[in-house]
Design a protein around this nucleic acid. Structure first.
Lengths: 195, 195
DNA sequence: GTCTATATTACGATAGAC
DNA sequence: GTCTATCGTAATATAGAC
């Protein structure tokens, strides 16, 4: 029953997405060819079109998948305590989730320009959903008197920008462990918004 | 004395750089062709090579020029007072300088991947120089007892990430003026690092 | 499901006329 | 300094064999 061509392994689809994720993150969507992706997977370029209608859909599905995972992961956490406790949970969650997926995070922020308008609108809406989660936490904290934040929407964007910045320098096995990094950033976030 | 070809205006060089800056920021370096840049300038593609040896040099000179302007602009400001006063000046300077050059800022952060290794090293060194300016301010403030910052290097990167994030949402003519935005971010920065 | 082969289009860069 | 024309290469996507 030896097969004469290809892997026929049944997992080519995920391998295509993995290869595209890594190559898009490393070189950028526009700079990566379908032939390169196929080469990583070990098939010819034409075979990719069994798994994606075109290159644009490949990018879009990676970005949408990432954002939906992000929202589902946060919404799946138990959210107990006052706004201060939930903000700490959010801070630690954001750093941890993003540090575990550097390629997907990179693509989600850098390749928005390369989405078609309709796909861009979808991904942007998901990103806004995530920002709104944090904004709601901050607003609740202001109402509870534990935070002093004049502009919760802006503070939410500022905090997310700061936390996402961890990905530009953090490397596992470096001087600081991830829990130590979380503690440093939580200290800054807490002081920046506390009443 | 009518001219029969091209503009012969003597300012084609700057117009090439301006067009490249705008197009690279909008669509990404890899997605922009020399023909597109030429079309924006109003010349044929071959004429661009009177102003740049190749496409890579065009990108590199834009990024290097931006980073050198940034450092020169900060170093050119009078730096008086204690660390708190200088940190406020830095915060307001960073927001203002970056908000005035959204395309160059975008390129400087997004197109690092598309630099050749040697060019990348040059731009990275300039970026580190800028981070070190802020780190020195924070460390001085710790020594003076006005700041409490356990990791000045990390805090510097966190503050820069937060401030640069303004560019993702700020638009002149929006609800908030630039001085108001500066005040909001300075409030967060100050509280995040104060003793 | 993957292959080979190809249609069609576009790319960066250069040569030589004016 | 810009033009026209072109070289050599590579892109996305598709067709049809196996």
């Amino acid at each position: 029953m030896a097969r004469t061509q290809g892997s026929h392994s049944g997992i080519t689809g995920p391998r295509v997405r993995d290869a595209a994720l890594r190559l898009f993150a490393r070189h950028g969507y526009a700079a990566v060819s379908m032939r390169q992706i196929a080469g990583e997977v070990g098939v010819q370029a034409g075979a990719l079109y069994n798994y994606t209608p075109d290159k644009q859909s490949l990018l879009f599905e990676l970005m949408r998948g990432h954002m939906e995972e992000l929202l589902a992961a946060w919404d799946g956490l138990p959210q107990e305590g006052d706004a201060m406790a939930i903000l700490e949970a959010f801070t630690r969650f954001h750093i941890r989730f993003h540090s575990e997926r550097p390629d997907a995070v990179f693509i989600a922020y850098m390749e928005l320009r390369n989405l078609t308008p309709g796909n861009f609108a979808t991904v942007e809406a998901l990103r806004r959903d995530y920002e709104n989660r944090l904004e709601a936490i901050l607003s609740r904290g202001v109402a509870q008197g534990v935070f002093r934040v004049p502009e919760p929407k802006i503070a939410a964007m500022a905090v997310i920008a700061m936390l996402t910045g961890v990905n530009t320098w953090f490397r596992t096995g470096g001087r600081l462990s991830l829990p130590e990094v979380e503690a440093i950033y939580w200290d800054m976030v807490r002081r920046a918004v506390s009443a």
